[in-house]
Design a protein around this nucleic acid. Structure first.
Lengths: 121, 121
DNA sequence: GTATCCCTTAACCAGATGGTTAACCGTGCA
DNA sequence: TGCACGGTTAACCATCTGGTTAAGGGATAC
């Protein structure tokens, strides 16, 4: 962790980058290997400039590296920011695992509670 | 997993909700226990209506449940959407762990490379 | 019963976002 | 030399976002 404020800015950009389905799809696609811009654009029903903008957003979040190779631009995923987001979420992992755990234990203890009303105080 | 399209919409809302520092701070605060709206607003230098809007965003993402108790509104975190986001990221975990792993192995193999130029390509 | 407290809603505003079309720019090929 | 290809930039547009102030509305306290 370099700096708290910077990490926050990073998280802003990372989560915002992941908040659009096209950009998530691009990440998924790149996870399968490098690709050119037009290859990335292919599955999506938007113009090339629109894709170009999405790539800039991913780049700004540090998720994407682009290097020109001839007249083609090779796009490569950098997963490090994903791990940053992952790390932030991990902090709260106990919250949902706790809940699932308690639910599992409850079911275990009461294997036949068919009609009972569930009240989680 | 109920439905692919719905899950995508969910992820849109969840990641977007987490893309603002105030909203992440609210999540952090609620992770420590329930709170009223004004308690949540306290640490932040924005108006109450602004906080109210942030709470609506968190609510829409399923991260927050609000129930009126007298004239106070009790806010409670629901961590389930965090686990959804976590799940999506987990899909790519191998990508950064791979990288860290390779880095670790490299360092292991070359324990004394102090002056060497590091070129990651 | 009325004043106060907690919070929401309404209306508005500036700036960001996500898309378009048109124009441009560098590379490769004929 | 010039044209086609891959991609970006520019300009524009509609909508969303994040903030504000002002007003309202229900529960509580006096």
């Amino acid at each position: 962790m370099v700096n708290r404020a910077k990490a926050s800015v990073d998280l802003d950009a990372i989560f915002a980058a992941l908040a659009h389905p096209i950009r998530r799809a691009i990440v998924e696609q790149l996870a399968g290997g490098d690709a050119t811009v037009s290859k990335l654009a292919e599955p999506h029903d938007v113009s090339l400039p629109a894709i170009s903008k999405h790539l800039r957003v991913l780049e700004a979040a540090g998720l994407l590296q682009v290097e020109p190779e001839g007249r083609v631009h090779r796009c490569q995923l950098d997963a490090a920011p994903l791990s940053t987001a992952f790390g932030w979420l991990t902090q709260y992992r106990v919250l949902w695992e706790d809940r699932l755990d308690r639910l599992a234990k409850h079911v275990e203890r009461n294997p036949m509670t068919k009609g009972k009303k569930e009240k989680s105080s």
